[in-house]
């Protein structure tokens, strides 16, 4: 309780420093938050493209419908497969005509083969898995050909890997910058109270007693900075949504994690700054 009131008294004694601290933390977390927002939106866009990854098995003309139904049941039970659809010759023709628009009449009935379309589960759309599913489907004797856009799947997968690695590296860099800025901000508070700390030590205050108000100060600044950053990111997201492109915002869990992250950074920054100071005096 005494530590809480000590922390509050310290903030009251130097209000400008406290406000500056919260705003600095807010801006560093804002940069981190904006990056996070871009990252989740790129991820979402990639996921939407990935949903189009499918394996198409073209069937021989003579295939009887019972064999197809049995194969579809089999394939539907593969662990990688989300769902299986049958496309009859007529449906294939109709779809082709729709896609070709003005050249619709070049197709005649019976030109296009019937097929099975296999959609894969999320997380099972990497080139290896797609190829393995295609190879297994190819073993059915009535399957004439299997296509899955091999090159396209590989490119998409590479793009996904690059964005994940770049995202992680940038995310770590942004988080590191945020931690350093928060640490420096809290260090200013520690230095502003250096004399007080030295007197506290001389009269016999324990290191824990000296540390605790700073930890609480860091926690409060981290939470307030986190909330302020959240407001900034939310506002930025609204502007983008209004005038540029449709984007998604953080989920409730992510928002909670962000604020807890801010608090954690505040406490960590305090711990490091005060610890270094106490070791030195």
């Amino acid at each position: 309780m005494r530590s809480v009131s000590e922390a509050l008294t310290a903030s009251r004694r130097a209000p400008l420093l406290s406000i500056l601290g919260v705003v600095t933390i807010a801006f560093s977390l804002f940069a981190f938050g904006l990056f996070g927002l871009v990252a989740i939106n790129i991820r979402k866009a990639l996921e939407q493209v990935e949903e189009r990854v499918e394996v198409r098995a073209f069937l021989e003309d003579s295939t009887d419908i019972e064999s197809v139904a049995a194969a579809m049941k089999d394939i539907g039970e593969f662990p990688e497969v989300a769902r299986v659809e049958y496309v009859s010759k007529e449906q294939a023709l109709e779809r082709a005509r729709k896609e070709m628009g003005e050249f619709a009449d070049v197709f005649e009935a019976g030109v296009l083969p019937a097929s099975i379309e296999v959609y894969l589960r999320s997380g099972m759309r990497d080139p290896m898995t797609v190829k393995s599913v295609a190879d297994r489907i190819r073993t059915y004797h009535f399957v004439d050909d299997v296509r899955y856009g091999e090159e396209w799947v590989e490119k998409l997968y590479r793009l996904r890997t690059i964005t994940t690695v770049a995202g992680l590296a940038l995310g770590i860099a942004f988080a590191a910058v945020a931690i350093i800025i928060i640490g420096a901000t809290i260090r200013m508070t520690v230095l502003a109270r250096a004399k007080e700390i030295s007197i506290m030590r001389l009269v016999g205050a324990t290191d824990m007693f000296i540390r605790l108000p700073f930890l609480i100060d860091g926690l409060v600044k981290g939470v307030l900075g986190g909330l302020l950053a959240l407001v900034f990111v939310w506002a930025a997201n609204r502007v983008v949504n209004e005038y540029f492109i449709q984007t998604i915002f953080f989920s409730r869990e992510m928002v909670f994690l962000g604020v807890v992250g801010g608090a954690f950074m505040g406490v960590l920054g305090s711990l490091v700054s005060v610890g270094r100071h106490l070791r030195r005096v």
């Binding site: 004694r13 004399k195 007197i199 001389l202 009269v203 016999g204 324990t206 290191d207």
Partner: peptide
Amino acid sequence: SGREISRLRRRIGIVFQDFRLLED
């Protein structure tokens, strides 16, 4: 230990040439 030193200092009075008072 650090804690023992803190306790010891509570039983020692220390005075300096520059007073070391908190101005505020």
